[in-house]
């Protein structure tokens, strides 16, 4: 699949944003006055909004994006839009009350947290629902998206908040998220298009005669299908990118957290761990798209 930069940014940034909203809604301790609350809320909400805005850049008609809220009965993309907007409105209200009166409404907070979890889940289901991409079509996909949202959200919230065990929990959550991703990678390695039961033989129905091989493409140049779904250029540096994802996404944040925990350095330094993890996740998300094989490739000579 073609790795669209806007979608990569969207899933990583809004994942962290909604992860942060989830934690703040559940009552993640943040000391300080209205200014601090404003800064924290702006970070969580801003990341979520920025991600959502980025995602509209890959639309052919961004001006019609509001129409995407109508088909929640069947469409995960529609559900995601609704969940995101509801969550942001609830969280906005929660943050406003928190800022002005200093009290954190647990009812509003918990509802916003539920909304944030639902948003990340619906985002992941957009990919996990697709039978045409066997590597995505797994319950591990929501687990990975939720794990990364919670992990990166925790690091951001910890940097501004006052959780007593921020570093330890951060290490646990980051490790858990990457364990889920590791399982996802192991499964993806075994759930390639060639293992899915679909083949050029089933795609053409000609398997009852014999082995099928593409002789001629229908067109001499590229088309939307080959650019979008038979895209393979992005896989060139797969190995390096996976190492980079693990290094910046897992190892560096874990080391930073350990150092802060041991040295007693200010929690603000966790921001460095959060930034490193986000860059690692950009590489991870690139691979999520670039390495995914779509069933339509079978019509273009790939197994």
């Amino acid at each position: 699949m073609h790795p669209a930069v806007s979608v990569i940014f969207f899933t990583v940034m809004s994942g962290a944003g909604f992860g942060m909203i989830f934690l703040l809604g559940l009552g993640f301790p943040v000391d300080g006055g209205a200014g601090k609350v404003f800064l924290v809320s702006l970070t969580g909400g801003g990341l979520a909004v920025a991600g959502l805005l980025a995602s509209t850049f890959h639309l052919g008609h961004p001006e019609r994006a509001w129409r995407a809220l109508s088909q929640w009965r069947t469409s995960w993309l529609s559900r995601e839009g609704i969940a995101a907007i509801m969550t942001l409105m609830l969280f906005g209200l929660y943050a406003l009350i928190w800022m002005t009166s200093g009290t954190r409404s647990s009812l509003l907070g918990w509802t916003a947290a539920l909304g944030a979890a639902a948003t990340v889940f619906t985002t992941s289901m957009i990919y996990a629902q697709l039978k045409t991409v066997p590597q995505w079509n797994s319950p591990l996909t929501p687990a990975v998206y939720s794990g990364f949202a919670l992990g990166s959200g925790w690091l951001l919230a910890s940097a501004f908040g006052n959780h007593g065990y921020a570093e330890v929990w951060g290490m646990v959550l980051v490790a858990l998220a990457w364990s889920a991703k590791w399982l996802w990678w192991v499964r993806a390695g075994r759930a390639r298009l060639a293992d899915s039961g679909s083949s050029p033989e089933t795609a053409t129905g000609l398997g009852l005669i014999g082995k099928v091989r593409l002789l001629e493409r229908p067109h001499t140049g590229e088309n939307y299908l080959t650019r979008e779904m038979v895209h393979r250029i992005g896989r060139k540096h797969a190995r390096t990118l996976r190492m980079l994802a693990l290094l910046l996404g897992a190892l560096v944040p874990l080391v930073i957290l350990a150092l802060i925990a041991l040295s007693g350095a200010p929690a603000l330094f966790i921001l460095a761990a959060a930034l490193s993890m986000s860059v690692g996740l950009l590489a991870e998300r690139w691979l999520f798209f670039a390495e995914a094989e779509h069933a339509v490739s079978l019509y273009y000579g790939h197994r």
Binding site: M1, H58, L59, G60, H61, P62, R64, A65, R67, A68, L77, I126, Q129, L130, K131, T132, V133, S198, A203, N223, Y224, L225, E228, M229, H294, A295, V296, Y299
Partner: peptide, 26 residues
């Protein structure tokens, strides 16, 4: 007139039956 050009339908189709119009973006 309702299509936002998100391309998800083309991803969902195993047959490659849908193509984005490069000028109209639908």
């Amino acid at each position: 007139d309702l299509c936002i050009g998100c391309g998800l339908c083309a991803w969902a189709c195993p047959y490659g039956a849908r193509e984005m119009d490069p000028v109209e973006n639908v």
